[in-house]
Computed example of a mutant assay.
Amino acid sequence: MGLQAALRLLFPPQCLLCETQVTTEFGLCGACWRDTPFIAGLVCDLCGAPLPGEDPGHPVRCDDCLSSARPWDHGRAALLYRDNGRKLALALKHGDRLDLARPLAGWILRAARPILRRGTLVVPVPLHWTRLLTRRYNQSALLSAELARQAGLDHCPDALVRGRNTRSQEGRSREGRFENMTGAILPHPRRGRLLKGRPVLILDDVMTSGATLATATEACQAAGATSVSVAVLARVAKDT
């Protein structure tokens, strides 16, 4: 304890987004906290987008999820993909900020607790091996491993594989995103058997149309998962 106290004096904790000193490790300063769009209150049961009004006591769905069939059972998101929510997602994905995995996974876990079931297996959305070679890590796998650790759940980072190197989803229409992802994610030839007979939580960093999560869900269902839910760090959605 003496060594830890000394280290805190020499290296006081700093805000995750700026160099302002904060009181706890992996925290945000007051200014950055105000600009971080945490999702709270009433949310869509399928994607986690915030909704207006009070909790009616039963699951509700946003307009996107009412108009688009979702193959998964439940979904949650920690942040909106704007302002600091976008900065944090991009810092983890492209900025080599691996230190963010621990606090961000904790935020996702806080949002996802209502949909977790006993015996849930946590799996990440996979990267194609060529993209993994270039990026050096899968940000979704970092988040899923840390969430599973904090929640005390089983984790399998390679239960799913990306069978082909899909092109970027950026700039594509909703229909184009789904077409691009069709059949791209499959159960791992050997590790995929761990999905059979288990409730599964699929984790990704950002949800836009839901095309990637839908393909991953279908792969889990094909492998025999009893139920599939999804959780993401950030949801692209209109503020309410």
Rank of each mutant, 00 (worst) to 15 (best):
Y81Q: 03
P126K: 13
C18R: 14
G30M: 01
P187F: 06
L127Q: 05
E19K: 15
P56I: 12
A6P: 00
G48Q: 00
R162W: 08
R131F: 03
L79P: 05
V122G: 01
V122M: 00
Q14C: 07
T130D: 05
E54D: 13
E218A: 06
A214T: 02
S144D: 12
A225H: 11
L143C: 03
D154R: 14
L109Y: 01
E175I: 10
L46M: 09
V161Q: 11
C32R: 13
E218W: 06
T217C: 13
K93N: 07
L16H: 08
H188Y: 10
R135P: 00
T226P: 10
D73W: 07
R167M: 08
R174P: 00
G152T: 08
A141Y: 02
P189A: 09
N165M: 09
D96Y: 09
E218C: 06
E146K: 09
L186D: 04
A211N: 05
L10Y: 13
A219S: 04
A6F: 15
A214D: 12
P37Q: 07
M1W: 11
P13R: 14
F38Q: 04
F178G: 01
F11M: 15
E25V: 03
T24R: 14
R162K: 12
L233D: 00
I115H: 05
T240C: 12
S173V: 02
L104Q: 09
C32N: 15
G183M: 10
S229P: 05
W129L: 08
C29M: 10
P71H: 13
L42S: 07
A237D: 02
P124A: 11
V22I: 15
D55P: 02
C62R: 00
R34A: 04
P126A: 10
P50F: 12
L100Y: 14
Q150F: 03
Y137N: 05
V230D: 03
L10R: 15
L66E: 14
L16F: 11
R86T: 13
I115W: 09
A231N: 07
V206E: 01
I39Q: 00
R136S: 03
K87G: 04
G197E: 15
G85W: 04
L17D: 08
G2N: 15
L132S: 06
T215V: 06
A216V: 05
A159I: 06
L132E: 03
L7T: 13
A89I: 06
V125K: 05
Q221W: 13
S209F: 01
R191C: 10
C32G: 12
A211G: 04
L132T: 01
W33E: 01
M1H: 14
R113P: 11
H94C: 13
G106M: 13
R70W: 02
R174W: 09
P199K: 01
V232L: 10
D73C: 05
K196Y: 15
R117Q: 14
L66W: 04
T240I: 11
L160Y: 11
E179T: 09
L92R: 07
G224Q: 14
W33D: 01
A40M: 01
D158P: 03
R190T: 15
R70V: 02
G197F: 12
C65I: 02
